[in-house]
Structure formats: C-alpha cells, structure tokens
Design a protein around this nucleic acid. Structure first.
Lengths: 121, 121
DNA sequence: CTAGACAGCGGAGTACGCTCCAAGGTCAAG
DNA sequence: CTTGACCTTGGAGCGTACTCCGCTGTCTAG
C-alpha cells in the first residue's frame, strides 16, 4: 500500500512514516513511479511500535528489535529469547510502577507533599 | 545545602540541577554570596522526580505536580486527589504493560515476528 | 490539456532533556 | 597572596522524535 493509505490506517502521519523509513524502523518497496509501497503487515508492526514506544522504548531500540527479527526469521528460539528479554524489561517496568503506586498510595491521606515518604515523626 | 552536595547526594549533575531550577522543577534560596541553597527535602523530591520521570512523566508535568502541591500545602484532600489521579495514570500504564506482556508472551513460541499476533491460520 | 489528489525530496524548525564550555566570582587553607 | 575547590552566568551543542515547508513529479478524471 502507498504511504497515504498506511497513514490513514495507522494514524501515523506521512511525514512520520517517511522519517521512520529513514531511520530503518519500517521498510517498503518502491513502485515503478518511485512511490513507496508498504506490505500490509506494516500496519501491525506500527501498532506494535506505538505500544512499545508508549512504554518507553526508543525508536532505535524498536528498530533494532525489528532488525533482529528479520535476521532470524525462522529461528523460533531466537524470537522467543528476544521476546522473553522484552518481557523481563516489561516486568521490571511494572515493578517500578507498582513501587510508585505503593508510594503514592502511602502518601494519599498523609499531608506531606514534598517531604513525602519521610518518617512522619 | 549547596548545589555540589545536592548533586552528590542525588546523583543528578550540577548542570542538570541548574537546568531543573530554571524550569521550576526545584527551588532554592540564595546565600549572601549568590550560591544556591537548597532545602534538605529537595533530595526526596528529586528521588521522586527520577521515579516519575522513569515512568514517562515529562519534567513539565512533574513540575506542575510540585507546584500544585505547593499551592495546596494544607489541603490533605487536594493532595489525595492529586495522588489518586497519578495512581490512575500509573494503573493505566500498568495495564498497557500487561497487554504488551501478554502480546509478547503470545508471540513467544510462535514463529511470526512482524506479522505477529495475526490469527495464525 | 488541466485540475486536483497524491507522491517525492531536502532542509529547516521545534520541543524536550540534558551536557559542555568559557569566563569569571567566592572562600578556606597554607 | 596564591592555590584550589566550589560556585556563578550565558550560550552553544546534542540526541530523540517529530513537524512543516517549498518545490517538483505522477496519475486519474473530465
């Protein structure tokens, strides 16, 4: 599909898509007239990109993951290892969030804003 | 305390601390000689800043929270509301992480990298 | 053939979050 | 009085992630 359709389907602007192609985050062929031609799975990939990005992964990291996936397209084990790595990162982030949540919960009801978690004695 | 000690205690560089002061994220007095003089609770505040930042809050957001806390220093209810807001945000982020985790888990073992969660039929 | 939608390219600009630098002031110790 | 650690300021520069712009090319419909 051409860039306009991809933009419409994913909500990612054309400029951003060109930028993503430039940094290797997405890949596509070219039509005889020079227009970009993206495969349909790019939509899925971009959804994944958005999610990963929202979770704090940089585009460079995400691009690297995509590249690794392309490098080992048949090795289910390599893929599993990669995903498990990401799961570990996600777990760590969730733990951090849980800690902040507990911290916030503890502060709710106490009246100390910046001094916060200090032993209220 | 002066900027060097604050930097040493928090692991935040002096340059960054001056930058934080410039954007209103931290506040301090001045000694007669012009040196910055930060109150001890700035250490706690910066730890909080680091955590919040790691979770994806921008410095502007964090500064705003700090300002709101300063505006309503006695209103425990306002504080609780603010913290509860943040807890909701944290919960949303945790849900997103859980979704990504599930997604990743589902992909582990399947051999489809970019096409990923597509109904493998 | 012309209009209009769509595409391409390169380059500038923006916002965020630092990071480094140069030139200079302050202060305690020797 | 000098040395050295510590502090000041302003401004430049950097990496990330876009975003906008102007100009030009392509294709389809009337």
């Amino acid at each position: 599909m051409r860039i306009g359709e991809l933009a419409a389907r994913t909500g990612v602007s054309k400029d951003t898509l060109r930028f993503y192609e430039k940094i290797g985050l997405i890949e596509g062929d070219r039509l005889p007239n020079g227009y970009r031609d993206f495969p349909p799975e790019t939509v899925t990939w971009l959804e994944y990109v958005r999610t990963a990005q929202a979770l704090g992964f940089t585009l460079a990291e995400i691009a690297r993951h995509g590249a690794e996936l392309r490098d080992a397209p048949d090795s289910a084990e390599a893929l599993s290892a990669l995903f498990e790595d990401k799961i570990r990162i996600v777990d760590a982030r969730m733990a951090a969030l849980a800690a902040l949540r507990a911290d916030l919960t503890a502060r709710v009801g106490t009246g100390c804003p910046l001094r916060a978690a200090e032993r209220t004695g």
